[in-house]
């Protein structure tokens, strides 16, 4: 379980997150949605320890992790897929997967992990994680590094962003699989209706505040379709 208690985050005199109180339960699939700039990424980074809250406490399985480092949180089982994956000079996909999984794996095992995100060719394994890879490929590798770790709490920041090349269905399949396996907590920041559809709970963030938590009916106003019907893509 992950618990936010009175979390505030200020930056440059601006209140970016205002007194967030939230409980995420085990084996549930959460989606955070809301307008750009509402504080979704900031909230996710605070969970991973990439940003430190100005005030408030975060508990992870009843342990106060507010002052723990990124490394400590990673080793406690929190995983984070970045919206914009980092690129490296000279570090291969294989190198990164070995770090992610914390042990020496064979190239075939690495390829198996990559195949879960739709990258199969064995020659991907030796590619450098640099800008010679397309945005979609980098994004898939980013997802693979999280899947490889099997975290207790997995956070994905806009996994659909920048992957137009990859058939979106594949992504949905990956997340459906995660939802079915449903070990631990999954938290996805997304605007995609099809991801919202598989959520157990949707958290709507606006202006640094949690506006609502519930099922997809809370989004009726936002997704109201001019042609009638329920939700529009």
């Amino acid at each position: 379980m992950l618990e936010f208690k009175n979390i505030c985050f200020n930056k440059d005199g601006k209140e970016i997150l205002k007194n967030i109180n939230l409980k995420l339960l085990d084996d549930k699939f959460y989606v955070i949605t809301g307008p750009n700039g509402s504080g979704k990424s900031t909230l996710a980074k605070i969970i991973m320890g990439i940003e430190k809250p100005t005030s408030g406490t975060i508990l992870f399985n009843d342990i106060d992790i507010t002052n723990k480092t990124i490394t400590e949180r990673a080793n406690m089982g929190i995983g984070f897929a970045f919206q914009q994956p980092a690129v490296f000079k000279g570090i291969t996909v294989y190198d990164l997967l070995k770090v992610a999984i914390k042990k020496d794996i064979t190239k075939v095992e690495a390829c198996n992990i990559l195949s879960k995100v739709g990258l199969c060719a064995l020659n991907y394994v030796d590619r450098e994680v640099n800008t010679s890879l397309s945005g979609g490929e980098l994004k898939r590798i980013e997802l693979a590094t999280i899947l490889a770790r099997k975290p207790i709490l997995s956070i994905f920041d806009e996994p659909e962003a920048g992957i137009d090349l990859w058939s979106f269905n594949n992504l949905i399949e990956v997340f459906k699989q995660i939802e079915e396996d449903s070990k631990g907590i999954t938290l996805i920041i997304s605007h995609q209706e099809r991801i919202l559809n598989i959520a157990d709970k949707i958290i709507l963030l606006e202006n640094g505040e949690i506006k609502e938590v519930g099922d997809k009916s809370i989004l009726k106003d936002i997704f109201s379709c001019p042609k009638g019907g329920d939700l529009c893509e």
């Binding site: 991973m48 990124i70 990673a74 970045f82 980092a86 490296f88 000079k89 000279g90 570090i91 190198d95």
Partner: peptide, 26 residues
């Protein structure tokens, strides 16, 4: 961003730096 990514994979800051430098000079 590179250091942060490697730390989210469980490396310490020192280990992350080492991996980045070794890769860079590989």
């Amino acid at each position: 961003q590179q250091l942060t990514k490697l730390m989210t994979l469980g490396l310490t800051l020192k280990e992350a730096e080492k991996m980045i430098i070794e890769g860079f000079l590989k």
